[in-house]
Design a protein around this nucleic acid. Structure first.
Lengths: 230, 230
DNA sequence: GCTGTACCTAATCAGTTGATAAGGGATCTG
DNA sequence: CAGATCCCTTATCAACTGATTAGGTACAGC
C-alpha cells in the first residue's frame, strides 16, 4: 500500500487539517468564550500541536475571525439558498419561511448565538467586527425587506423593538441555553416541532396573531388595559 | 472633627469594601466572562489589591458565587416586592405585571443575562450552580403559577416552548446585546416605552393577541397555512 | 501598656497562556 | 541530484493568572 493514492490518504492534506482546526476552534470559542478557550486545547482536539495554529492562522484573534467568517458564510448560504427556492410565494409567507430557516439554523448551530453573546461588551474589538462585518448587513437587509413589505401594505407596521428581536432577541437565547433548555423543560431545541413553534412564536411577536375564522391580523397588544396602576 | 463619628468616615469599613469588590466583580464577570476577568483588574477597579479578594472571598470561584447570589437576591426581592403590591388584581394582569417587572429588572441589570449566557456550556460547574440554585426555582415557580391559572381557566394553554421563553428566551437577549441594540436600531433598552413594548411582546407571545373590539384572546398562531411546501 | 484580632499590602509562588525560533521531513521544481 | 517550499513539531520565551506567605497597622478587650 505505497502507491500514489495511498500517499494522499496518509497525509490528511493541509486543507483538511485547517478545517479540523476551524471546527475545534468553533466549538471551543462557543463553549468557553474567547479567553476561556486555549490554543493548546483547540490543537489537541484537532489532533495537532499548538504552534500549528499560529502557522495557519497568524494569531488567536485571526483564528477567531476565520471561525466567525466561516460560520456566517454558512448562515448566509443557507438563507440565500432557501430564499431563492421561494418563487411565486406571497411576501408574508416568505418572511415566515425565512424566520423558520433562521431558527432552524440557530438550532443546529448553537455556536452562532453563543459566540455573539459571549463577545458582547462595550469595548470589544471582536464585537465591533461581528456587528460591522456580519450582523449589520443582516439587520439592514431585514429592515429593508420589512420596509418594502410595509409600503406594499402586505405587513402591518412593525415596532422597531419587535424587529430587533428577530435577529437578536427571540430566536437566539433558547439555543444559547440549549443544554439548560433540555435540563429545565425537557425540550429539544433541534426537534422539528419545537423549531416550528419557535418560528411561529417569533412571527406572532412580529405580526400579531391571526384570527382563526376571519384570517384578520391582530397586532401584538398588551393584555393590560390602559389604566395601569402602581 | 476627630470624634467617634469621623473614625467611621475615615475607614471605609470592611462591609463597604466588600460591597465595592462585589460590584466591580459583577461588572467584570458580566463584561469579560469568568475566564476573561482577572482578580487584579477587579481589585484595581475596587481600589484594593488582589490578595484582598482572596482574603474576603476564599477563591475566584467563591467570589463568583457571591456575586451571583447577590444578583439573584436582588431579582427575587424586586419580584417579590411587586408581587405583594398586587392585591385584588386579576391573575392574568398579575402575570403581565410580573413579566413587566422582570423585563424592567433585566433592562437595568444587564449583567444578569450576560452572566447566564456567558456561563452556558455543558460541563460547567458554574452553570450547574446557576441552574440548580437560582434558575430552576424561578422556572418551577412560573410553571406552577401558569398551571394553576390554566386550571382556573384564566389563561389559555401555553406551549412549553413559549413558557420556556419567558425566563430564558424573549426577555434576555436584547439586554445581553444592550450596547449593540443601541448601535443597530437606536433603541435604548432602559427606555420605559421600550420596556413596555418588550413586556407586551412577551405576553403576546405567551397569550396571543387580544382582539381590539371583542377582547377575545387569540392564541399565537402561524401566518403559514397548513400546506407548507419545501 | 500589652495582647489579640480584623483588615489590608508587598513579595512571591507555580502553572498556564499566546507567540516565536529553530529544525525536521516530505514534496515539488529545476 | 540540489535547492526551495510547504507542513508540522520540539523547545523556549515573556507575560499573566490565581493563590499563598509573611508582615504591617489600626482598633478592642483586658
Amino acid at each position: 500500500m505505497g502507491s500514489v493514492v495511498s500517499e494522499r490518504a496518509q497525509r490528511p492534506s493541509a486543507d483538511a487539517t485547517r478545517q479540523r482546526i476551524l471546527e475545534a476552534a468553533l466549538d471551543a470559542f462557543a463553549d468557553q468564550s474567547f479567553d476561556g478557550a486555549s490554543l493548546r486545547n483547540i490543537a489537541s482536539v484537532a489532533g495537532v500541536t499548538q504552534p500549528l495554529l499560529n502557522y495557519h492562522f497568524r494569531s488567536k484573534a485571526d483564528l477567531w475571525r476565520a471561525v466567525v467568517d466561516e460560520l456566517f458564510d454558512r448562515l448566509n448560504v443557507t438563507l440565500g439558498h432557501h430564499l431563492r427556492s421561494l418563487v411565486d410565494v406571497e411576501d408574508r409567507i416568505v418572511v415566515h419561511h425565512m424566520v423558520r430557516r433562521f431558527v432552524e439554523f440557530s438550532a443546529h448551530n448553537p455556536q452562532l448565538h453563543r459566540i455573539i453573546t459571549s463577545e458582547c461588551r462595550a469595548d470589544s474589538s471582536r464585537m465591533d467586527y461581528l456587528v460591522e462585518q456580519h450582523i449589520r448587513p443582516l439587520y439592514d437587509a431585514v429592515t429593508t425587506l420589512f420596509a418594502r413589505l410595509a409600503v406594499a401594505g402586505d405587513l402591518p407596521d412593525i415596532p422597531p423593538a419587535h424587529l430587533y428581536y428577530l435577529l437578536t432577541g427571540a430566536a437566539p437565547t433558547m439555543f444559547v441555553l440549549g443544554p439548560e433548555c433540555r435540563r429545565l423543560s425537557g425540550l429539544d431545541p433541534t426537534d422539528d416541532d419545537v423549531i416550528r413553534t419557535h418560528a411561529d412564536a417569533v412571527c406572532t411577536l412580529l405580526f400579531g396573531a391571526t384570527h382563526p375564522q376571519t384570517g384578520e391580523y391582530l397586532p401584538p397588544s398588551p393584555p393590560l388595559t390602559g389604566r395601569a396602576h402602581d
